[in-house]
């Protein structure tokens, strides 16, 4: 039976829900990453997100390396539209987020340019929530391309979690990105 008691993390009998915000400029592939992760699908067509698109997927995770029983971790993915200017509605979206995936387009270095405009407010509202960086569309550039180093260097500026080179089209490192963030969220929860 579902335990409907409210809680910081909505803990049911071994089920925990966590909110994750997908952040980034337009056309970097936020929705595609979510679609690949949740439905294992990819669509070549570009569809602009308006407001926020909600989807979720559950993962079996251990609370910590030492814990025995896995928990059913339900990730509620908030796929946010491109943020032109920070406003109260967007801050409402950010509120209570347990983590964030900041997404870039490896073929467009300028997709990094406005990171501070949305990431700093996000961190102000959610100071202890972990963040990882997903540099997407890596299927389009060869591994020796200068943009890889460029994004590695730039993301270091924000002192976040890992910087992973993903491809929603091929699925490359998409699972790893969300699993890594889930682990960081559980670790942050345990502190």
């Amino acid at each position: 039976m579902v335990n409907a008691v409210k809680g910081k993390s909505l803990q049911k009998a071994l089920e925990i829900s966590k909110k994750i915000c997908m952040l980034g400029s337009f056309g970097v592939g936020k929705s595609s990453l979510v679609r690949r992760f949740v439905y294992d699908l990819f669509d070549e067509r570009y569809l602009t997100t308006i407001g926020v698109q909600i989807s979720h997927r559950s993962l079996l995770k251990r609370m910590s390396a030492s814990s025995r029983n896995p928990v059913n971790l339900k990730l509620i993915l908030w796929d946010l539209a491109h943020i032109d200017t920070m406003n109260d509605v967007i801050k409402t979206y950010f509120r209570g987020s347990h983590g964030a995936v900041v997404v870039y387009d490896i073929t467009r270095p300028e997709s990094f340019d406005r990171t501070a405009e949305f990431l700093l407010p996000f961190r102000e509202i959610n100071p202890s929530s972990p963040v990882i960086f997903a540099v997407n569309k890596c299927d389009l550039l060869s591994p020796n391309h200068a943009n890889y180093g460029l994004f590695l260097e730039k993301t270091k500026l924000f002192n976040g979690g890992s910087c992973l080179f993903t491809s929603a089209r091929t699925g490359e490192r998409v699972e790893e990105a969300f699993h890594q963030l889930a682990t960081l969220i559980l670790e942050a929860d345990g502190r």
Binding site: S17, K19, I76, V89, T92
Partner: peptide, 27 residues
């Protein structure tokens, strides 16, 4: 499920401490 993370606000509405809680343009 989009209310996950907003438990305090929802509780505030239930207790009448918060006049409303709004989420716009959800899809």
């Amino acid at each position: 499920p989009e209310l996950v993370g907003s438990e305090d606000q929802v509780e505030g509405v239930l207790q009448g401490k918060q006049r409303r809680f709004t989420l716009e343009k959800i899809s």
